[in-house]
Structures are given as structure tokens and as C-alpha cells.
């Protein structure tokens, strides 16, 4: 899937940040997608920011 993270996956099935390195911004512009870990938190964030939630179901194999 494009990253070399070898950490065991949590029971929840969620990954905190899907990337191969630390999340960062360059000049305030995001350099990668920052995936959320918790669905309910995502809904709260979406309400607050007037955004939509995108669920990405994937298979790591």
C-alpha cells in the first residue's frame, strides 16, 4: 500500500496516520493526507469544519 510501517495494527482496524514518515506541513500547506483514527471524532470534526467524512476501506495485503 505504499508505506513501510511495520507496527502491529490496532484492534480497531484504524491507523492513526497513513504515511511513511512524520506528518508535517510546508509553509502551512499539508504535504500528505492525515487520516483520522476515530470515526466519532471524525464526525465531530466534520460538523465543526463544515466538511464531509470520507471512509476509505482497504486491505493491507
Amino acid at each position: 500500500m505504499g508505506f513501510n510501517d511495520t507496527r502491529p495494527l490496532p484492534e480497531s482496524g484504524f491507523l492513526n496516520v497513513w504515511n511513511s514518515g512524520p506528518s508535517h506541513k510546508k509553509g502551512g500547506i499539508p504535504m500528505q493526507i492525515e487520516w483520522l483514527e476515530n470515526f466519532d471524532s471524525a464526525l465531530s470534526d466534520a460538523k465543526r469544519a463544515h466538511k464531509h467524512v470520507l471512509l476509505d476501506f482497504y486491505n493491507p495485503l
Partner: peptide
């Protein structure tokens, strides 16, 4: 999607501005 699409700068920008993304194992 992870190797081709998600690293794309336009995709990253769109996600940042319009979406709250969540990934879940199948």
C-alpha cells in the same frame, strides 16, 4: 490508491480543504 493517488498534491490539497478522512481495514 496509496502509492499513486494519495501522494498527489492536488488530492492532498482537496482532502485538506473539503474532507475529514478515516481509514478502516476491511
Amino acid at each position: 490508491m496509496g502509492t499513486v493517488t494519495y501522494p498527489n498534491s492536488k488530492v492532498i490539497d482537496f482532502f485538506s480543504k473539503r474532507l475529514v478522512p478515516v481509514r478502516a481495514l476491511i
